[in-house]
């Protein structure tokens, strides 16, 4: 997009994510846990947590998850989408079945368009991958927008290191 050449991709990402109903939290450090922000969350970016959940965990147990945290591979500026794939997910249903989906994202890992996004993905090397932009939504009743159709009711993207961007633009 033409606009993006003059403005940082990061700002566009945030604008478009908000338009899709997603929430943004900006934090400075990329190290450490963001547990303080989401005290009840299950943080799947921690290996010890990942080990407790596997593909054989019962759906009934997963259905009780209120809030889960994943690390997004990268974001797409033009539509606020974040890419997740098998290697990030101990169980593929997790980002959908939870009530509140939290995605950590390195602010430097944002591409402009979907064309650039697909240049970064290796579909042939994964089993399942998904772009997620905002919370689950529907407008099937009289075109009234409602969040939380079947997937997560809330989506929050935690962008870390936004201050590093000034040099990268």
């Amino acid at each position: 997009m033409q606009i993006m050449k003059s403005e940082p991709k990061y700002r566009h990402f945030i604008e478009n994510l908000r338009a899709a109903g997603g929430e943004i939290v900006e934090i400075a450090a990329h190290t450490g846990s963001i547990a303080a922000l989401f005290p009840d969350a299950i943080d799947f970016t921690q290996e010890t947590v990942r080990d407790q959940f596997s593909a054989s965990t019962s759906l009934e147990d997963l259905d009780k998850l209120e809030c889960v945290i994943f690390e997004g591979s990268f974001g797409v500026a033009e539509n606020g989408a974040v890419w997740l794939e098998d290697k990030d997910l101990p169980h593929r249903i997790l980002p959908f079945i939870t009530q509140h989906l939290v995605l950590r994202l390195d602010s430097a890992n944002i591409v402009s368009t979907m064309e650039e996004a697909y240049d970064r993905i290796r579909l042939s090397e994964t089993g399942f991958g998904v772009f997620i932009s905002g919370p689950s939504k529907t407008a099937d009743i009289e075109q009234s927008l409602v969040y939380g159709a079947h997937g997560a009711v809330r989506e929050t993207v935690v962008c870390y290191n936004p201050s590093n961007l000034s040099s990268k633009g």
Binding site: E78, N79, T113, S133, S136, G151
Partner: peptide
């Protein structure tokens, strides 16, 4: 896919992209 995912939702509902764009490559374990 880069071309079509940019067009589909914008032309359908005016969204920049659908909430979920899911890519199924392999069956899940078992």
């Amino acid at each position: 896919l880069g071309v079509f995912t940019r067009l589909l939702a914008r032309n359908a509902t005016g969204q920049a992209v659908t909430t979920y764009t899911s890519h199924y490559m392999r069956p899940k374990p078992q």
